[in-house]
């Protein structure tokens, strides 16, 4: 997670080709961008491609960057485009089993009512628990997954997420709610089985 207030970069130095300032930028943002790639593509090699292409593209376009958005927003925008392009390229090779459900306008109504929220942390975050969380994120439709990653994993604001993805704030809020509810359902099904409390009818 990047706290944008703790990372300030000189746009002038970056645009003038200051290698040391660029190295600082790479250092600050490489971990979150790699994480975004990993969560979007679920594959370390693809995540590394997203990471490298993001900074190669940033280097190529720094001179054109006018600073209308923050450097952080600009970098995340390049990274999310790289990730989505790679997903599209790979989809051409996807088999039918790899297809994910398309984003739909279905209502987001909760269906599982088991309170597993007080299970101990070591149980929730056991190796198996972490795999269940990763799998739940992986199975979100990509348009919801990207919003969820930026907002809830990287802790960016609704406004920043909207700017990065070129969406309205309302649209980001809708997608975020749907992503959260879908994950809650999946995790409720998983943790609910481990919860001694009975499900309400």
């Amino acid at each position: 997670m990047i706290n944008s207030t703790t990372h300030e970069f000189s746009l002038e130095a970056l645009r003038a080709g200051d290698r040391s300032e660029f190295a600082r930028l790479v250092d600050a943002y490489s971990a979150p961008i790699y994480r975004l790639g990993l969560k979007m593509l679920s594959n370390p090699q693809d995540a590394e491609d997203v990471l490298q292409n993001t900074f190669l593209n940033a280097l190529l376009h720094l001179a054109d960057f006018e600073g209308r958005s923050s450097v952080s927003t600009w970098l995340y925008r390049i990274a999310s485009n790289e990730a989505l392009m790679l997903i599209r390229r790979k989809k051409a090779n996807f088999s039918i089993e790899d297809m994910q459900p398309e984003d739909s306008d279905d209502e987001v109504m909760p269906e599982t009512f088991v309170d597993w929220s007080l299970l101990p942390e070591n149980e929730l975050l056991s190796e198996e628990g972490k795999r269940a969380i990763d799998s739940a994120i992986k199975h979100l439709p990509e348009s919801l997954r990207m919003v969820f990653i930026l907002r809830d994993i990287e802790d960016l604001s609704i406004k920043e997420t909207a700017e990065i993805l070129n969406l309205s704030e309302t649209n980001v809020k809708t997608r975020l709610l749907r992503a959260r509810m879908a994950l809650r359902e999946k995790l409720s099904a998983y943790y609910g089985e481990r919860n001694p409390r009975k499900e309400k009818e």
């Binding site: 994993i153 994950l183 809650r184």
Partner: peptide
């Protein structure tokens, strides 16, 4: 339950 588990879902992912 929905509020508690949604809140926990976000915590766990972060």
């Amino acid at each position: 339950i929905v509020v508690n588990t949604t809140r926990r879902t976000i915590d766990l992912v972060q």
